[in-house]
Amino acid sequence: MESVIRGAAVYLFVWLIFRVSGKRTLSNATTFDLVLLLIISETTQEAMIADDNSMMNGLLIIVTLIGIDIAFSLWKQRSKAVERLLDGAPLLIVEDGRLIPERAIRSRISESDVMEAARDKHGLERLDQVKYAVLEVSGKITVVPK
């Protein structure tokens, strides 16, 4: 019983903390972000496993985590509002070569973040070559060139 409760509690807690920390947290994938993610996963694992290293405990926790994930995805499929609540929504941050300042500030995005995505995927040189840039739910910035 405890394994299922632990698995569910950790799933919900991790979801909540990543959800309220913003789209950009840990999505930048710098080396440090990767290390931070590994530290978080290690800490989470300790909290879930506690002092029970049995196979049955591992099996129960995996089934719980995957089960909740499937349940959430089915729920998201049925309702747009639930999908927004659980995953968030994409946000337009550059329109016609201009950064929309308020959205960028609140989403913790700078012009250089947009230019990094623009150079990376499209080899663009300047912001005015960007038609649209969208902050996706994954935290990545996608760019539509002019």
Binding site: R19, V20, S21, G22, R84, G88, A89, P90, L91, L92, E95, R98, I100, P101, E102, R103, R106, Y132, V134, V144
Partner: peptide, 30 residues
């Protein structure tokens, strides 16, 4: 440019600024 701008009609994007406002508020509180 105002925050309540709608996305361009030809850009198929599921943007919801009301939700985004709530999200930012939740982020600040958290």
């Amino acid at each position: 440019m105002q925050i309540d701008d709608q996305p361009p009609a030809h850009l198929q994007i599921d943007q919801d600024l009301t939700h985004e406002e709530r999200q930012w508020k939740a982020e600040r509180i958290s």
